[in-house]
Computed example of a mutant assay.
Amino acid sequence: MSMMRIEPFDGSGAFEGYLAKPEGAPRGAIIVIQEIFGVNPGIRKKCDDWSAAGYLAMAPDLFWRLEPGIQLDPDVPEQFQAALVLMGRFDQDAGVRDIEATIRAARAESGARKVGVAGYCLGGRLAFMTAARTDVDACVGYYGVGIDNLLGERHAITNPVLLHIAGADHFVTPDIQARMHEGLDDHPKVRIFDYPGEDHGFAAEMGKRRSEDAAQLADRRTAEFFAEVLG
């Protein structure tokens, strides 16, 4: 496990990404998109788990323009508040361009294998934006926030997308969930799974938010999805 340097498209410097390589040739590449807490131990563990499953895995530091290398713990109130401030300052459009640069790097690093994206919270929203704005091969979004405000981009999605919705998500209320279903249920490339009674962050790798059974179910569905699309 190591860090790698990624060149952004705008030539404004460079940023780092956590890199986890599998034993032998990768079956594909998976980019893990952070929550609002940076590339913290939970995000790095997701990369490690994907590499153990045979994928090359990368997690770009999307907050590098604000506070490079920051890692926050959602269970510490002061750090949670700091994360909310960072989210408010974060340029999501620039973030998607940085994800696109990471997709390019992942294809080069993996030997032109297919690339998937798995995002959580803010990353779930960015995964949806990535599906609509890039040529990534597959996208998964866990409890993405504000996707109902992105439905105007649904027609640009041409590759498979899987969304996990937490039924009791205090950031994504039932009316928002209903708009997501209304806007996406008939999309031939989008599949949505609902998790009744589960709250935001239920698939976190560690900490108080994790809900074990729901996390394992969602992760199993994600693994099956990537196996089908990426190989």
Results as ranks from 00 to 15, higher is better:
residue 75 D to T: 12
residue 127 A to Q: 04
residue 96 V to R: 01
residue 104 R to G: 10
residue 72 L to Q: 03
residue 108 A to H: 11
residue 128 F to D: 04
residue 82 A to F: 04
residue 122 L to N: 04
residue 81 Q to R: 09
residue 135 D to I: 01
residue 79 Q to W: 07
residue 74 P to F: 02
residue 133 R to Q: 13
residue 91 D to P: 05
residue 114 K to V: 00
residue 137 D to C: 05
residue 78 E to L: 12
residue 78 E to N: 09
residue 78 E to G: 10
residue 114 K to N: 07
residue 90 F to P: 01
residue 128 F to L: 13
residue 130 T to Q: 05
residue 112 A to S: 11
residue 98 D to N: 12
residue 129 M to I: 02
residue 72 L to Y: 10
residue 71 Q to S: 15
residue 113 R to I: 00
residue 96 V to Q: 01
residue 112 A to F: 07
residue 96 V to T: 14
residue 107 R to C: 06
residue 78 E to D: 12
residue 117 V to Q: 00
residue 98 D to A: 12
residue 102 T to M: 14
residue 80 F to R: 14
residue 132 A to T: 10
residue 72 L to F: 13
residue 112 A to Q: 13
residue 102 T to S: 14
residue 119 G to E: 05
residue 99 I to D: 00
residue 105 A to H: 08
residue 98 D to Q: 09
residue 121 C to V: 01
residue 95 G to W: 00
residue 144 G to M: 10
residue 111 G to V: 07
residue 107 R to A: 05
residue 86 L to C: 05
residue 93 D to G: 12
residue 132 A to Y: 03
residue 113 R to M: 07
residue 121 C to Q: 03
residue 80 F to P: 02
residue 145 V to M: 12
residue 106 A to G: 09
residue 136 V to D: 02
residue 111 G to D: 14
residue 73 D to Y: 09
residue 91 D to F: 14
residue 139 C to T: 15
residue 121 C to L: 03
residue 134 T to F: 02
residue 81 Q to S: 12
residue 93 D to Y: 07
residue 124 G to P: 11
residue 72 L to C: 01
residue 75 D to N: 12
residue 131 A to E: 00
residue 84 L to D: 10
residue 73 D to Q: 10
residue 87 M to K: 15
residue 135 D to L: 10
residue 86 L to M: 11
residue 132 A to R: 10
residue 117 V to T: 08
residue 99 I to Y: 00
residue 93 D to F: 13
residue 104 R to Q: 13
residue 100 E to Y: 02
residue 88 G to V: 04
residue 107 R to E: 11
residue 108 A to Q: 13
residue 100 E to G: 02
residue 94 A to M: 03
residue 113 R to S: 06
residue 142 Y to V: 01
residue 130 T to Y: 06
residue 123 G to F: 00
residue 89 R to V: 02
residue 75 D to P: 07
residue 141 G to V: 01
residue 124 G to C: 04
residue 119 G to F: 00
residue 114 K to P: 06
residue 129 M to R: 15
residue 126 L to D: 00
residue 102 T to P: 01
residue 72 L to G: 01
